[in-house]
Amino acid sequence: MEIKDKIVIEIDFTTTPGARYRTDGDFSGEQFLEEILLPKFEKAVAGNYKLLIDLDKVWGYPSSFVSGSFGKLSLAKSSELVLKHIEFKSDDNPIRLEKVINEIKSPRKK
């Protein structure tokens, strides 16, 4: 499947991802999911293409951000569909990549 769109988190969102919910503060996982991730993901599914997400060049990803965005998307749309339409990139940190993919495969219900 061809990659036709991308999200570069440090450019399109922030270099300092926050916590889980909007009520927890700025740049939360919920904000990222609702404003950026979900709309682009739905377009990718409708257009049958892949969305590339560049995870590099941020200060770090709190577990609550990962769970509140990628985990929540996986719970809503199924891990198979998410991994079919999203490709992740992290040249800086392979463990970060692993953590995001594991969260999608086994999302925590919070």
């Binding site: 916590a19 889980r20 927890d24 503060g25 709190p62 577990s63 609550s64 953590k99």
Partner: peptide, 16 residues
């Protein structure tokens, strides 16, 4: 990951 989750999946990351 258990240690990281303790610190970054709980109250510490909340702005309040």
């Amino acid at each position: 990951h258990s240690y990281k989750d303790y610190l970054t999946d709980g109250e510490l990351m909340i702005s309040s």
